[in-house]
Nucleic acid binder design. Structure first.
Lengths: 214, 214, 214, 214
DNA sequence: TGCTAAGCGAGACGGTACGTCCCGTCTTAAT
DNA sequence: ATTAAGACGGGACGTACCGTCTCGCTTAGCA
């Protein structure tokens, strides 16, 4: 994102400006959304100048993505030995990652990426991939354990999970609640599990021991 | 959308302006997306003035929604007697409705509705509800026929369908293909059908007779 | 001013509108000056429509002049037998006429008349002539009495009086005070009287009897 | 007028814009008067933008005053040794200064200053003071020479001169002619000179030598 | 130590669009 | 024919940002 060339000669960039700008931009995204994010006002509240920001990020979309990248921090995949529990826990990864940002902001950034393939890839790398990777590993493990049918396409399942979370956030203007996440998992697992009832039973025993709240 | 008060008195609005503006705005949405939609340029290309547009739609979001409402035309629900075929056909309703618009445009409009409850409701009324109503009827019929399990929550199923279509359009920058739609239906029906295999078998016999292409 | 054609046929004009408009326009001239006088706001505060005003006065300059004509009411010339007293009293005619209006308003109206000979004549007829006529008679009488030199051009004197009043009002943003008016009369009469000292002496005797406050 | 703050930092203003704008504004004042002076059209004909003009002059009144200041150039006071000749020559200063501008424009500017004390002071500084200073010196010299009576208030005389010039320009929609100026001087000097006839006689001898045309 | 290349703040530049206000004209239905 | 109501095309307002530029000053690393 940060467009730094052959550093070495010349005065080095003031790193304080980087953080000041990202902080100010983040605040502004939180307060008034992406459409209200302007170089002008960010420069003003970060006590710097537009030029200093342009030197680092060429468009406000790049800047906003930098803010997202700066904030998101996806924890590693859980492994409780219980497929349903793992899934529920994995969903938390998605949800908590998204909950650090206003739902509409992510969406707006994405829209802004619409006409720039490179930017869209950046978005996927930063926003989509990390939580997806976590759940992918989790489902593959489940399939190896025999909890998922052999012919289930994990990619499709992930698409659905991802989609529902995004859509709910955006259309409902609120993130998916834990109950809704559970309902979603049930629907999908009924179709994808080799023996759904067994999974539920197993999940109960684990629940008692670990009491994993979604 | 169109903010008409105590009609009757005063010079009536020129309906030619309505269509000229909607046409121009539509063109601009198609060509350069929502973010490039400006009252200024719409007025210019529709050969009218900003004021005449403001009189009808107070913000460009309202205008864009009016364009969407003007374009979308959802056909009635099919009833072939075959649940899978009906579903596939119903998906077409969703898909064709969305395919008349750039995927990112819908999303951008939605983002713009984020901070306005009334506008968001309008969006739902125009964009979400019509195709949703079609598929709702369709799934209820299937449930009455005994093709869907009694305990399946139709609302949840619809949420998923809706979400996947929207998300794919937006994140993938492309609308859901027919194959993907079929894969999605399979996953969901495996979990929701009382006897999925029977549905598939029945679908085959119908397919031969009616050759319903998705 | 009022542009009434061949009245007789059709619905008659509502005279209430005339007064309502003149009142509203007058208020607006008093409060915010000529430049802020708009058909729009006058129509609004007079609870009528622009068209009804246009029917009566074609431009806001005509309207403003109508307000002035409606207000100004010049009293007849005094005749005390004392030239200086008469003059002082005559000045009151000028001053009181102007004091019913904001100084800048008259000036602004005049500017607005600059490019319209007919309108300028109207202005002269309404604003300049009445007080001028009063003082003209007064000076002619003085000249007949032998108080003014035979070779004094009364027109020039009037020009000067008129000018000083106008200019002071406009440049000083305040109307001429009575003391200043007296000083002005002194300067002019010193040059124009056949025997200034005698006039002053005469004025003193009259003053005692009539105590004419300026 | 020109609102330049802590000069030194930042990109310096393009002085070409200053002159282009003043030229364009001057042209517009000459052609269509003050009321037709708009930032929009000035920007257009000066091939620049409204913002660049706003940066220099906050209102069109300031702009118009800047045009006046840019144009007026008052020559120093004459000293011929003949009071009447000096006065006549001094009047030329007033007159030529005002003749570079449409009479109604000055007036309109003044009206626009009506509600702004600071602006009105600016107007006085630019328009009134310079010629006034010239004639003040001239009359003081005459008084020292004994040509003017000791008890004559020079300020009052100046007020009158100033007023008549302004008023005639504005009300008559034309500047004072030379003959009228002479008549005015005569009236005032008759009242103010210690010996008017002597001044006239002296003036004749000078006239022959220098032939000062008014 | 002094050169040079960049960073930096300040702020002007030509632009585009905003949302508002008023203009003077018109169309309609009601009086 | 006038009225209230209100739409019409048009023009200008003053503001906000855009992305670029020109300055003079600061801050390094390299010679």
């Amino acid at each position: 994102m940060d467009v730094r060339k052959g550093a070495g000669a010349g005065r080095p960039r003031d790193p304080g400006i980087d953080t000041a700008v990202l902080t100010a931009a983040g605040r502004q995204l939180d307060d008034r959304g992406f459409q209200a994010l302007s170089f002008e006002s960010v420069a003003r509240t970060a006590h710097t100048t537009r030029a200093a920001i342009y030197r680092r990020w060429p468009t406000r979309t790049h800047l906003a993505l930098a803010v997202v990248a700066w904030r998101l921090d996806v924890p590693p995949a859980p492994d409780t030995g219980c497929t349903l529990c793992d899934l529920a826990e994995g969903m938390k990864v998605f949800l908590s990652a998204f909950r650090t940002l206003r739902p509409d902001v992510l969406n707006a950034i994405h829209v802004a990426c619409a006409n720039d393939e490179e930017l869209r890839a950046e978005y996927r790398r930063i926003v989509d991939e990390p939580p997806r990777a976590v759940v992918t590993g989790l489902l593959q493990r489940a399939q190896r354990r025999g909890d998922l049918r052999e012919d289930v396409d994990i990619g499709s399942l992930l698409d659905i999970l991802n989609a529902v979370i995004h859509h709910r956030a955006v259309v409902g203007a609120t993130h998916l609640s834990n109950d809704e996440a559970e309902a979603l998992i049930e629907i999908l697992m009924r179709g994808a599990a080799s023996d759904y009832e067994r999974l539920v039973a197993h999940s109960r025993t684990i629940d008692i021991q670990h009491s994993l709240p979604l």
